[in-house]
Design a protein around this nucleic acid. Sequence first.
DNA 1: TTGTAGGCGTTATCAT
DNA 2: ATGATAACGCCTACAA
Lengths: 346, 346
Amino acid sequence: MTRIDDVARLAGVSTATVSRALRGLPTVSEATRQRVRLAAEQLGYTASPSASRLAGGKAGTVAVLVPRISSWFSGAVVDAAEELLRPAGYDLLLRTVGGRSRAQERLPGTADLPKRVDAVLLVATPALVSAAPVFAAPAFGGRPLPGVTVAAGAPVPGWPSVGVDDVAAARTATEHLLQLGHRRIVCLSGDATDDLTRPADLDRRWGYREAMLAAGTPAEGILEFAARAGVEGGRQATAKLLARGTPPTGIVATCDELAMGAIVALCRAGLRVPADVSVIGVDGHQFARAIGLSTVAQPAAELGRLAAGTLLDRLSGARHDDTEPGRVILPTRLILRETTAPPRAH
Amino acid sequence: MTRIDDVARLAGVSTATVSRALRGLPTVSEATRQRVRLAAEQLGYTASPSASRLAGGKAGTVAVLVPRISSWFSGAVVDAAEELLRPAGYDLLLRTVGGRSRAQERLPGTADLPKRVDAVLLVATPALVSAAPVFAAPAFGGRPLPGVTVAAGAPVPGWPSVGVDDVAAARTATEHLLQLGHRRIVCLSGDATDDLTRPADLDRRWGYREAMLAAGTPAEGILEFAARAGVEGGRQATAKLLARGTPPTGIVATCDELAMGAIVALCRAGLRVPADVSVIGVDGHQFARAIGLSTVAQPAAELGRLAAGTLLDRLSGARHDDTEPGRVILPTRLILRETTAPPRAH
DNA sequence: TTGTAGGCGTTATCAT
DNA sequence: ATGATAACGCCTACAA
């Protein structure tokens, strides 16, 4: 592998000049810079990251922590974040930090983060993760690792957070059914013990309750039903629900995947959507549009971009104030499609 | 941040011993190892990756190159791969290498890979990417970067590849419809100019053709229809197809998302699936099961695990032979559900 | 504007 | 089994 001296020799300058020229530092004459660039190109030279990081003191890397990357939300956020981070010169270190269960093991393999990355992007991780000691105060006076949380279960002290108001989102969804005239509405939500269930689910359940209660629903009218995560989980839970007796006239699912599963179950049970029962989700999943699912959409990609931008600001030292970092809440949008309608008059 | 000398001092040994002890090298007495471990723990010491990499010569990182991470396939593969790579001590460097269009720009920001990672995992990337010079021969005698391709559009010379036989998969799907008695079958495939269309789509189209031709279909019976990627793309394309005149009795989609879109379009057009038209996909998407979509499933997670395992073998130097690396083809499974049936007798 | 030299924190080599 | 002591390849004062 070619090293910096090779380039220096070829260009007829010192290694220091090569370093400066290639990194675009101002104290280099245009002429030399050109010569150095040419030499570097000819040799196919690239600075060794380990060496520059060691010498320069910055990792040039952002850790992306997700429960798992194979979920539409993580994927959308990370894709969007990468679009800003890469051009800014940062690499993405991907790490799954496990769901609720694994999180308890003190976030295994996270202690090395401060030395390995410049900042952290925490996506859709459960509350326990936020309490990880690494995020709080690295041993002995090192300043805390900068970071941002996106739709996390709990804020990390000192980190800004971006997300949506999940309580309000679910409330909006529920209110929509209420306004259509529905009264017997069940909330289908992710089983909290399921690692795949996102932390947002909990808030969304609260949103459902609030809306129902505000509408004067008696306590026994709060109909909550837990499902394993994913479309299949939603289908199974709904099937079970239908087997129990009179179906509800409306279903609010805490995420679109569950909603889609519910629709499948309803169709198979011979019930028509929305003629017999209305279904609305929360998420704005890619599939929702094609399926015609009514939903309260959250701007996943926008959240990713915003988080990345915030991180970059912080890293470039633009904002280094000690004021408690902000909590940005992006708006959700109620999107009415073909799965919600007034209940059948009986 | 605590450094190795701090630990050495506290443990009363030299830095060399600390290094050896912590890395589990054999030439350390159990007693000292314990003392060192304790000291390290007390100080919360973690070796600086930049320094170890610089000194040790290995990056401890695997680059994961995907067109985009927000696709069910990439996500599934990467999640599975991470499960092997992390415990083995490797970090994942995530990078999107752009689709067809961006790939032409000589894979911007890939030239640094040899110095940054120990190996590469190339997932579902188009053919052009495989030709990237970095993968072939780093300048001046450095040995080529090890790597594996997963479901890539073209093999990288010298790298093993894992994947499925996409031609056969689509052929199987098509033959299924053929055997049910369908004759007027259209193939719905991803628009090749769409960055989001996976390279496998092309092969799958061939599979359709082969099956049709083998069944004695005249050339004008080969009905191919391109769609933008995703469920919505499949829906739109199918809607357009239906608007053109007599619908086919069967649709083979080159991926499940397109198949789901097709189903939506058919339903909206008042056609019943499978009574009026049968639909079968290829992929084994998470949603397929819940939706009841018949499909030819590929083992995405298994591919990821296999790729990671292969990489680890190669990295541990277990196999360093110069024989041309293997091409592992995992079997696909025809899964019959509720979207395929014999055509209506007319 | 450019060159010189010391240091970044580990690991590897060679003694002991 | 353990301790000095060079590398490792680059960056950053400081000097010129």
